[in-house]
Design a protein around this nucleic acid. Sequence first.
DNA 1: CCCCATTGATTGGCCGACCATGCAATGCGT
DNA 2: ACGCATTGCATGGTCGGCCAATCAATGGGG
Lengths: 170, 170
Amino acid sequence: MNEATGPEQAPCTWPAERGAAPPGGPVGHLVTRVARLHRTAAGRALRESGLYPGQEIVLGHLWEADGPVRQSDLIKAVELDPSTVTKTLQRLEQSGHVTRAPDPADRRAVLVEATELSCALSRQVESAWAGLEEHALAGLTPADRAELLRLLTAVEANLCDRAGGCPEAE
Amino acid sequence: MNEATGPEQAPCTWPAERGAAPPGGPVGHLVTRVARLHRTAAGRALRESGLYPGQEIVLGHLWEADGPVRQSDLIKAVELDPSTVTKTLQRLEQSGHVTRAPDPADRRAVLVEATELSCALSRQVESAWAGLEEHALAGLTPADRAELLRLLTAVEANLCDRAGGCPEAE
DNA sequence: CCCCATTGATTGGCCGACCATGCAATGCGT
DNA sequence: ACGCATTGCATGGTCGGCCAATCAATGGGG
């Protein structure tokens, strides 16, 4: 077998100075965890509409800008990796929620548009989303919610400039 | 009105009563976005240690409970899907960060242990995490951070009881 | 006019997460 | 002692994300 370095155990033998800090920075894990829970909950809610979590964001943008949208604009709007958007759109097209056509004015561009089928879902999705939001924020006062928004926005901004690939438009 | 897969037609023709609410509830998307940014940043930070985001959480638990851990306990601790943990551990084992052995006391159980290789990484990972945490929370006062923690915890609790699969002791 | 950098999008590969399913070992109840 | 529910993990499949590399079209500079 592998005796790697030690016969058995004697794992880490910590500096032993710690003990208070649980596992890693709390906020990082927490936000990850909350996001996961939220996504799962969204998945359940969207399931009844035949959608998967992640697709609502794309569809949401298409619903808003009601009309054909250049895929590149969509990518900038949702701030996701281009390949992610491509795949999502392929799925959405396959499930009939979206149509895609080449842009006659620029043959490498693709124009995306929400179908009526997806529009029928829009109210359902919206209400599901609102319900989820309400549930997630239950028990929080309006002031709490504003605070949460403010703090998360601040964190977002902080993380953004590290990644360097954020809106940071104007 | 149902030309379904019609030519190009008018897309959604919203009730037009909206207009203020951007796309969906703000907090949901925000938290998703923050989590994504955080994960990406963590990925960059961990890359230098040869780890992928998600693995640090598992390793963190193994480092803490220094010694063999039953996989089922690990699963409860990280609160992830068993299959996710299995796959993560397989990767970690393959990369030499973890060893797995059947539990002699219960032959269906698996005992997991961090290797010394991973221990060498622990400080690196820890400091990377701390740095990331600090960066994410830059500009926030201690009071802000406490608030953020409190609010996120509340949201977590709210989402938990919807999913129904949370700790919620009994 | 032609070459080349830029932009737009796709492909392939990888990992993390979930669900549903399957299977082996355990342990409880009768 | 036997049978059956439970527990513990693994597999297969799907989706969402990222990165790296690729191809097609555009457009600017020489």
